[in-house]
Simulated scan of single mutants.
Amino acid sequence: MVIAISGIGFLNYILVREYEERGFWATGFFGGLVNSTAVVVSITNRVGDFKGSDRTAVSTILLANSAMAFRNLVLAVLFVPVIFVDVFVPLGLIGLVGVLIAYFMNPFGGVEAPTELKSPFSIKNALLFGGFFLLVLLLSAWANVALGEAGFIATMFIAGLVSSGSATTTAVALFGTGQIGGEIAALGVIVGTIASILVKTLFAVVNAREITVSVFLWNLLLIMIGLGGLGLIIIF
């Protein structure tokens, strides 16, 4: 899992470096595939440094969230194909709607947004991710045994506040060892993704209050869409 995450991160880091001149689309989407939290922190810290800063910053955050949702979808389906239907609708909707909103706010190539993404290819980063993943995995397994499915889902939400990638890989790993079922694994991936979207508003509050309301409302819309997609899966 650590190798898979690191490989995807490094591949998309190369894409960011290659297409950086494309502006915020590369920064937001490709950067979001590497680390959506890093993108949001970087952008909110630099609101005002580039043309059309408010709209560009909000659009970049939406793109980062969309990329994160697509990445989690691919990882979940890659390792647990049986949950394809359960995760495809909610995460696919989050990713698609986020891209569409970002496009209408700032069409492709409309502005240039700076990026300071650093290469994710390092022993330190791999060990940090691996260590956090191990911690979340152990806590989730314990919560699932001690508190049942509710404990597992709560752990996924808390993990998603820090790293939705860790939440996704944990859900996949526990399913692979037979500790949770496919539907619960899918729910864990979705909850972790939603938690990651939610926490992005906090960075706006701390670093760029002028865009806090917009970030909160658009992120809330993505969350509601994800929950709506989850509801459709449960109903049908």
Rank of each mutant, 00 (worst) to 15 (best):
K118C: 02
E149R: 01
F104W: 05
N125P: 13
V85Q: 11
A173T: 01
I101C: 03
F157T: 12
L174V: 03
L96S: 14
E116N: 06
Q179T: 08
K118V: 07
G176C: 06
G110L: 09
L137Q: 02
I101G: 00
S163W: 08
E149C: 06
V89C: 11
A143Y: 04
F84I: 03
G160I: 02
L138H: 05
L134P: 06
A143G: 15
A185H: 04
Y103R: 02
I83F: 01
L134D: 00
D86G: 03
F129D: 13
F104T: 08
L128S: 10
S119D: 12
I180H: 10
V136D: 03
G151S: 03
G160S: 06
G160K: 15
T170F: 01
G165S: 10
S166N: 12
T177M: 05
A141M: 07
V111A: 10
L91Y: 08
V172S: 00
N144I: 10
K124G: 12
L128V: 08
T177H: 03
Q179M: 11
L127Q: 15
G110H: 05
E183N: 09
I153D: 10
S122D: 11
N106Y: 06
G110C: 09
G130H: 09
S163G: 14
L138D: 07
A171Y: 09
G181K: 01
I94M: 09
E149G: 07
V189M: 07
S140D: 10
A126K: 14
L137W: 07
L117R: 05
V89S: 14
V162T: 07
L138S: 06
V97N: 13
E149H: 05
Q179W: 06
G110T: 03
G131C: 15
A154H: 04
L147C: 08
L161P: 02
A154W: 04
L137H: 00
F157A: 08
E149V: 07
Q179K: 04
G176W: 13
L91T: 04
F84E: 02
G178W: 08
L117S: 01
T170Y: 06
I153V: 14
A173S: 07
A146Y: 00
E116G: 11
G148H: 06
G181R: 00
P90M: 13
A126W: 15
L128Y: 05
S122V: 11
M105W: 04
S166F: 03
I94S: 09
E116A: 11
A113S: 09
N144R: 11
L100I: 08
V87E: 13
E183T: 14
Y103V: 07
N144C: 11
L138K: 09
L93F: 14
V89M: 04
S164I: 09
A102L: 02
G110S: 14
P107T: 04
N144F: 14
F84V: 05
E112I: 08
G188D: 01
S119M: 11
S163A: 13
A141C: 00
G176Q: 14
T170K: 01
W142V: 00
G131N: 09
I94D: 07
V89I: 15
V89W: 03
L128I: 06
G182S: 13
V111H: 12
G182V: 15
A171E: 10
